[in-house]
């Protein structure tokens, strides 16, 4: 039963199992285990990023394609919900319409980009996605009549999902719409994650891995490599858009910085690499570790910079604004020394 839910892809490592269970329990009971607004924000962000990173891993880890447009698809989903809620008013229907149209738009765009670039060389894809994504990001901030420009959009979602909706108390925690909203995000993320797990462990997923290992041989066996690569791109884009819709429902705000920026793209890359490319569980660990680090590491660096006061260069290097540099170094080192990431390490060290 459990194996069937996990599509036969069990963690295969005792430590990994424990870690994953801990993450699952913490996220499932987050509103009661960690009361407080900030903790709930962090938990929801982790859920959404797990899906986003897992969908990226479908491309990077399983198919061996590097894309820089993943935030663009994420943003499409988010803007879909935002625009639908703005124009159709505050309703569940608007959320559904926005989510569906965002996902469809993302899949169509991915299909177009894929047809142009994957047909020739997989390496074109990385460059073309970078160009298209940056053009879309600029376009979104320019078309401010529609998208709100740099300021983004704020909109209303159904009352049952907002903190204003209260309905009693459980274990000393005030139950309100925010908690319903959290469980919506959590449940949707869990379903999407299991769906991705199903996809990568299906015959289709096997073909993707074959293409990653040797595309020439896969073609020779008789699989249409271009078709499979394009399909993987579309699937991954659609799931990323769904994650974006969840993010928009959770935040009740979209803007270029929260959904489209290149920084988020780098974050996703780091999460995939740190967690482990080519395993869906890597996405879980990568997202959890990274989001926690993002929230708490910067304050730690501030403390360290204060402690290094008076030394020559060190305070500048430890400045909290320079944390991206340390992530970059970590990124390079992990690509060199732990190409299989945390999950790969845990599985091989059984």
């Amino acid at each position: 039963m459990l194996t069937a839910i996990l599509s036969g892809d069990t963690p295969r490592s005792r430590i990994l199992t424990v870690l994953l269970l801990a993450v699952l329990v913490c996220l499932a009971a987050a509103p009661f285990l960690f009361p407080g607004v900030r903790a709930l924000e962090t938990a929801a962000t982790i859920c959404i990023f797990i899906v986003l990173v897992a969908s990226y891993d479908l491309l990077l880890g399983y198919t061996g394609i590097v894309s820089f447009a993943h935030t663009m698809f994420f943003g499409l989903g988010a803007y879909g919900v935002a625009l639908a809620s703005t124009h159709l008013g505050r309703s569940w229907g608007a959320l559904l319409v926005g989510t569906a149209s965002g996902a469809v738009a993302a899949a169509v765009l991915a299909l177009l980009i894929g047809l142009f670039s994957l047909r020739v060389r997989a390496i074109f894809f990385a460059m073309i996605t970078l160009a298209v994504a940056s053009a879309v990001a600029v376009l979104v901030s320019q078309l401010f009549e529609i998208t709100g420009g740099e300021d983004g959009l704020t909109y209303q979602i159904p009352r049952a999902l907002t903190p204003a909706f209260r309905f009693g108390e459980l274990f000393g925690v005030n139950l309100n719409g925010r908690i319903i909203n959290y469980y919506l995000v959590f449940a949707a993320s869990l379903v999407l994650f299991l769906l991705l797990l199903r996809i990568v462990n299906s015959p289709f997923g096997r073909v993707l891995q074959a293409i990653r290992e040797n595309d020439f041989r896969a073609e020779a066996i008789g699989y249409r490599v271009v078709w499979y690569r394009t399909a993987a791109t579309c699937l991954s884009a659609a799931v990323a858009a769904l994650a974006g819709s969840l993010y928009a429902i959770w935040l009740r705000y979209v803007g270029p910085d929260t959904t489209l920026s290149f920084e988020i793209m780098l974050d996703i890359l780091l999460m995939v690499v740190i967690g482990g490319m080519g395993t869906m569980y890597g996405a879980v660990l990568g997202a959890v570790i990274f989001v926690l680090a993002q929230n708490y590491l910067q304050s730690l660096m501030g403390v360290a910079a204060g402690a290094a006061e008076g030394l020559p260069v060190l305070p500048l290097l430890l400045d909290p604004n320079r944390w991206l540099m340390w992530l970059g170094i970590l990124f390079i080192l992990s690509v060199y020394f732990f190409p299989t990431g945390i999950v790969g390490r845990l599985r091989s060290g059984r």
């Binding site: 260069v313 970059g328 170094i329 690509v335």
Partner: peptide, 18 residues
Amino acid sequence: QILVTVGGLIVIEQLIHV
């Protein structure tokens, strides 16, 4: 290559900031 050189890009950019 793509991953590592992107990492290098970030580090050099941040060093310019420093």
